[in-house]
């Protein structure tokens, strides 16, 4: 009798293992990320409202969050604790993205004024500039600062244009085949990665403007809005409508996706941007849930 029970028990365990392994989608099983912490400004008193971008200052070990709905910038330490709130004398009008340059200046894309606005933190001077390229007005959207140059995504054309610090245009990164242009970009080393939402394709350019290759994202994404390349070269694509992140290997093969829709910790609602921090964290700016969440392996 005992022998029979052991035999049945073994079969049951095997059957359970089989059933469980069959029911976990391989794409989910492969996700190694777990929630680490969230940057939230005084949750129940003065929460963020529609944060749209994150900038990471590696030297100062600070995170900066653009709190678009409340027209301000927030800075946090590496642990996600609030340090400062900057609203430039309440003069910011729909800030959308920002960078910090090494000379104590903060540069902000102000959508409400269609300007690239510089804030001198020492003199508290705010200067606004409109950008042009080839005689045409630029509508700045995303902003990066690499190697002494600003890289600005123009929302009207979907092109990326580099500018000197004197805001003179230098180089345009464009794709003729894109029906709607790019919606986000990142620069790693000498490569500029740009995301074409409509065609669900990532374009790689060298900084000279020459197209280096493309990666098709296929139907694993629905409404991709942001991209980041991990330290191992894997490509991470944030999907605003599916509220998840799709991961592709170096050759562009889909590996897995993770995160899901919701309002609780580790869940997303209308996420808008992803970035890797220098400390191994994958940061997700969650516009709908008004927070920035950091995930680690």
């Amino acid at each position: 009798m005992k022998k029979k029970w052991v035999s049945w028990s073994g079969k049951t365990v095997l059957a359970l293992i089989f059933i469980v392994s069959c029911n976990i989608p391989s794409a989910w099983a492969a996700a190694p990320w777990h929630w680490a912490f969230a940057m939230k400004q005084d949750l129940l008193q003065d929460s963020m409202n529609m944060p749209t971008a994150l900038f990471i200052d590696k030297g100062k070990e600070h995170y900066y969050v653009v709190d678009s709905g409340k027209n301000r910038l927030l800075s946090f330490n590496r642990q996600g604790e609030l340090l400062n709130i900057l609203n430039a004398g309440k003069s910011l009008d729909v800030p959308y993205d920002m960078v910090r340059t090494g000379d104590g200046m903060i540069w902000v894309v102000e959508k409400g004024r269609n300007s690239l606005t510089s804030i001198d933190l020492q003199s508290r001077k705010v200067t606004r500039a409109t950008l042009h390229y080839d005689g045409r007005l630029i509508y700045p959207d995303r902003l990066e600062y690499v190697g002494g140059l600003f890289y600005v995504l123009d929302k009207v054309t979907g092109d990326i244009i580099s500018y000197t610090k004197a805001l003179k245009p230098r180089q345009r990164y464009s794709c003729d085949k894109c029906s709607r242009g790019f919606v986000d970009f990142r620069i790693y080393g000498q490569t500029l990665w740009a995301l074409d939402r409509q065609q669900k394709t990532v374009y790689r350019f060298d900084l000279g403007g020459a197209l280096d290759g493309t990666i098709s994202l296929g139907n694993f994404v629905s409404f991709p809005v942001s991209l980041a390349v991990g330290p191992s070269g894997y490509l991470y694509i944030l999907d605003r409508h599916k509220r998840d992140i799709a991961v592709y290997d170096k050759s562009g093969i889909f590996k897995y996706h993770f995160l899901r829709h919701g309002f609780s910790r580790g869940e997303l609602d209308y996420p808008i941007e992803i970035r890797f921090d220098p400390w191994g964290g994958l940061c997700v700016v969650d516009e709908g849930n008004s927070r920035v969440e950091v995930f680690r392996r």
């Binding site: 729909v94 045409r136 979907g158 709607r180």
Partner: peptide, 29 residues
């Protein structure tokens, strides 16, 4: 014809497009 020409007569639309999210998107400028 550039978008600026359209917005000359439709300034209210210009105001709406200077928002967090807009339908400014590529169509040959």
């Amino acid at each position: 014809v550039s978008m600026a020409v359209c917005l000359k007569c439709h300034p209210d639309v210009k105001g709406q497009m200077l928002a967090t999210h807009s339908h400014l998107a590529r169509h040959k400028g």
